[in-house]
């Protein structure tokens, strides 16, 4: 199914909500945000990290234990551990062209990468300049029950916000699928992108308090990963009770929903990413 773009005078965006636009603008290509034009909304234009902004929030409120551990101890270890003698840059494995000798080939979707389904970026030898690090964590909670009972979407987002300290973005169903009761544009949960302090706080909770107490958890699967150094794993709704933010108030969260946690790293392949994450204390397993 192709993406639907709704075009307005102000901006163009992919529409996940049903509906259509009656406006047919093609005349100006400069992106305009209406809030920039309105004098009464001038306060919103101040960057959020400026102390005069109404959205200012101090982040560096305490020592960042996990980040300090990385810079002081892990970084030099990782450089030595991932060092390979006489290593060369391994070129990327992108999707391939079918050729340019016929218009049919020219407009055909690109061929799969050689020997693989997914593409891979180039792998550079690890030096002091590109030691892998965790760049972000995405916490994604899709609640399929919210399709039937819409209020569950709110509790799902509240749960994600409680766990991560960040207000989640609303997720919408992307397509119509009768068998899954999916209707395009229905709210189905939330997701947050964590960086900085919120990220290290969430990671330390996960490593030290949550994962060790899940009895069925054997480790993150070694097969997990997108070949570009981002590793994903899931937690079920029963595992949620081990988060200390929820543990003491379980009766306030009667409808728990599981999470998909993606740890994004600057490693160029999954193997390096796994080395990095196991240095942080994430267990990995083949089972």
């Amino acid at each position: 199914m192709s993406k639907v773009f709704i075009r307005q005078f102000s901006k163009t965006g992919i529409s996940l909500k049903p509906g259509y636009s009656t406006v047919h603008p093609v005349h100006h290509l400069v992106k305009v945000e209406k809030s920039n034009l309105k004098p009464s909304l001038k306060e919103l234009l101040v960057p959020h990290d400026d102390i005069t902004s109404i959205k200012y929030r101090p982040y560096e409120i305490d020592q960042d234990r996990i980040a300090e551990h990385y810079t002081n101890t892990l970084k030099s270890d990782l450089m030595l551990n991932l060092y390979q003698y006489d290593a060369d840059t391994i070129p990327a494995n992108p999707k391939r062209s079918w050729g340019v000798d016929s218009p049919y080939k020219l407009y055909r979707p690109l061929k799969k990468p050689l020997g693989s389904i997914r593409t891979r970026g180039q792998i550079k030898p690890v030096t002091a300049k590109n030691i892998p690090e965790i760049t972000g964590v995405t916490v994604h909670s899709y609640n399929k029950k919210a399709l039937v009972e819409p209020w569950l979407d709110i509790t799902t987002r509240l749960q994600v916000a409680t766990l991560t300290n960040v207000k989640p973005k609303q997720l919408f169903a992307k397509r119509n699928l009768v068998e899954f009761k999916l209707r395009k544009g229905k709210p189905v949960g939330g997701k947050v992108e964590l960086t900085g302090r919120d990220m290290t706080q969430f990671l330390s909770t996960l490593i030290e308090l949550v994962l060790p107490r899940i009895r069925t958890f054997k480790g993150i699967k070694n097969s997990s990963g997108d070949k570009k150094g981002n590793i994903t794993f899931g937690l079920t709704n029963e595992d949620m009770q081990f988060f200390p933010e929820i543990e003491a108030f379980q009766d306030l969260y009667p409808n728990m929903n599981g999470l998909h946690i993606t740890i994004k790293t600057s490693a160029s392949n999954d193997e390096q990413a796994r080395t990095l994450l196991s240095a942080y204390g994430f267990p990995f397993t083949n089972a």
Partner: peptide, 12 residues
């Protein structure tokens, strides 16, 4: 620095 930022955070 951390004390100042922490107090500011609590205030906001």
């Amino acid at each position: 620095f951390y004390k100042y930022q922490n107090e500011l955070w609590r205030r906001l």
